[in-house]
């Protein structure tokens, strides 16, 4: 990815806080169009907060979030989503009492698009996650954890996003399912040139998948670089991989 072009998402000096507790202490981060960027860090480093601040909750206290050159840091959440920034939130947050089909439909409801475009999106999602096809008329809450994660990503994809934010897609999933989901993300990136920001604790998987990675500690970015290169660094191995070797 060339760094010369303007990034799709550019975060400059971003600060955010919950009351008096500062969770983001000046974040700088770039995502180029067509790139997969991984954000790794320990529990409580502020990864999820960063993702939610992009969506306006909590609001940025200082700094800028530029999406395609437009500052979105003071936009309400639903308007950010309508710019075709989609997210699969932490804890998946699917609608448990609605069917899989209705869940997917909800993903497309708020963003403009013709019926034909929606049908194409739906077909694409079901192609990526054939398991959802079998579960279409089932209630979301009856799906397994892996299927729910697929549904959350599928729902996000229904709005034909320009940028997809994934918060811990591997959380609590069996290694096989994690691999399926990561391979779907790679497919989306290669074939549809979808730009992805992925937040993960599972540094090994995430950095192998991503073009570039950022490491976050205590509300600050401490390292960044090429995904594979980060993976080789001894401090990363010590901090994020040794504990997760058995996984």
């Amino acid at each position: 990815m060339s760094a010369a072009t303007t990034p799709l998402l550019a975060i400059r000096g971003l600060r955010a806080a919950y009351g008096k507790i500062e969770a983001l202490k000046g974040i700088d981060l770039d995502i180029q169009a067509g790139e997969i960027v991984a954000l790794i860090g320990a529990n409580g480093a502020g990864k999820s907060t960063l993702m939610m601040t992009i969506f306006g909750r909590p609001r940025a206290r200082a700094g800028e979030i530029l999406f395609d050159g437009q500052n979105i840091s003071s936009m309400p959440t639903h308007e950010v989503a309508r710019l075709r920034i989609a997210q699969s939130p932490e804890g998946r947050r699917i609608f448990p009492r609605m069917t899989v089909r209705e869940n997917l439909q909800m993903g497309a409801d708020a963003t403009p698009g013709s019926k034909a475009e929606r049908a194409v999106s739906l077909e694409r999602v079901l192609n990526l996650f054939p398991r959802l096809q079998e579960r279409m008329e089932q209630r979301g809450g009856t799906l397994s954890g892996g299927e729910q994660q697929m549904l959350a990503i599928g729902r996000a994809l229904m709005s034909r996003p320009r940028l997809l934010l994934l918060d811990e897609p591997s959380l609590g999933l069996a290694p096989l399912i994690t691999r399926q989901i990561f391979s779907a993300i790679r497919t989306l990136n290669c074939e549809d040139r979808l730009t992805v920001l992925i937040v993960e604790q599972n540094a090994n998987h995430a950095l192998r998948l991503a073009h570039r990675g950022y490491v976050m500690v205590n509300g600050l970015i401490t390292m960044s670089g090429d995904g594979m290169e980060l993976l080789q660094r001894p401090e990363i191995r010590a901090a994020y991989l040794e504990g997760g070797r058995h996984a």
């Binding site: 939130p89 448990p96 609605m98 209705e102 439909q105 909800m106 708020a110 709005s159």
Partner: peptide, 23 residues
């Protein structure tokens, strides 16, 4: 869509916002 949004809001307001629904 409005009725679906009502039901989705009942289930999860935060997820609704993230999908572009104006709560």
């Amino acid at each position: 869509p409005i009725g679906r949004a009502w039901e989705a809001m009942r289930e999860d307001e935060v997820a609704c916002r993230a999908l572009g629904i104006n709560i």
